[in-house]
């Protein structure tokens, strides 16, 4: 069991700064998620924890002890790779036993460790199968079992389920959360999928260009993004960022009235989540500038793409409302369901 901490860590590759003055602390047993677009530094942070890269500046600590000069082998941190890297010529059980056999641990000590991991991962029924005979989700679990059987102090996962299809991803991420809970180990998890990040993580670190933009619980970041960048990263469809009408309590040339709102000073944009944007028919012969561009029924909810002049907006409406493309609609947003950002993209509050 271990906490992991970064203190002002910087890592450069040639001229590019992959990780820029990053500090954070991951608590013992925490499910910590590094989330960001490609090349934002997520994988480099994993490598710094593993010891595959050394920081140029700053310090990496595991359990409070600096490990900058500790080799990967001595850090006892396990990694589950994106491509899983199971040995195809071995059965699941042999794959799981492999790390222990390799370390010359006596067979009578191997058996209970394997049994323990197998029970927690619910993979007893597939132990005799080879990786080729397993489904994507099953292979995933065997790979995790192999990483866990060593009893590492923490384990790291680099986008482990991105190769699975959508339905399987939805199931596997819940499974991952359960496994982490049962194994009670610190887990550092890299993903570029916002839904996955929010679903599994105790806390998320949102990265951009090697800098952590915000760290917090998923619901906290979702409800109170500190910048327009973070607001846009979480949620699908993404938050609508709408320029405020200068000098008036409205946006979209008056089409989105904000009289009831307490618009803070310095705010130039309002951010509204698609589910908080209320859409009502503007009625016959209305002059509303907001036109329905496309309607996408998802069954339980309907996503409506709207066009207001140059601005494209998305609203998410519950159920299966009757909204016709090209019709005109009126928009509203309730008090407390919007964020405001200044010209720099930083959140401002009243």
């Amino acid at each position: 069991m271990a906490s992991i901490a970064f203190r002002n860590v910087t890592k450069r590759f040639g001229d590019t700064v992959a990780v820029n003055d990053v500090s954070f602390e991951i608590a013992d047993n925490e499910f910590f998620c590094l989330f960001g677009p490609p090349l934002s530094g997520k994988t480099t942070i994993l490598k710094l924890i593993l010891g595959l890269e050394r920081p140029d500046e700053g310090e990496v600590l595991i359990d409070g002890k600096p490990v900058n000069h500790v080799s990967p082998a001595r850090r006892n941190v396990a990694m589950v790779f994106q491509n899983l890297a199971l040995f195809p010529h071995m059965t699941s059980e042999e794959n799981i036993r492999f790390p222990l056999v390799e370390r010359r641990i006596s067979p009578d000590r191997i058996a209970p460790r394997v049994a323990d991991v197998v029970a927690k991962l619910h993979i007893g029924h597939i132990l005799h199968k080879s990786p080729a005979q397993l489904s994507g989700g099953e292979r995933q679990r065997v790979a995790i079992a192999r990483a866990l059987v060593r009893d590492p102090v923490a384990y790291l996962m680099d986008d482990p389920i991105s190769a699975l299809d959508a339905r399987l991803r939805e199931e596997t991420r819940v499974e991952l959360k359960r496994i982490q809970h049962e194994m009670s180990r610190t887990l550092v998890y890299v993903t570029h999928d916002q839904e996955e990040a929010m679903s599994v993580a105790d806390r998320i670190a949102v990265l951009e260009n090697g800098v952590i933009r915000q760290i917090g619980a998923p619901s906290d970041i979702y409800d109170n993004p500190r910048s327009a960048y973070v607001a846009g990263m979480l949620g699908a469809p993404a938050m609508n960022l709408i320029t405020l009408d200068p000098g008036r309590l409205s946006a979209l040339d008056g089409a989105l009235p904000l009289h009831a709102m307490n618009v803070p000073d310095g705010a130039t944009r309002i951010g509204v989540r698609p589910e908080d944007l209320a859409v009502t028919s503007a009625g016959e012969g209305s002059s509303s500038p907001v036109e329905v561009y496309e309607v996408e029924p998802l069954g339980g909810v309907t996503v409506v793409t709207l066009q207001a002049g140059e601005t494209s907006l998305r609203a998410m409406v519950r159920g299966q409302p009757k909204i016709e493309p090209s019709s005109r609609v009126a928009l509203a947003v309730a008090e407390g369901q919007a964020c405001f950002f200044d010209s720099e993209g930083q959140a401002v509050t009243a």
Partner: peptide
């Protein structure tokens, strides 16, 4: 340990 082996792969 296994970490070194993991570390050398992909």
């Amino acid at each position: 340990t296994m970490a070194a082996l993991d570390a050398n792969t992909p």
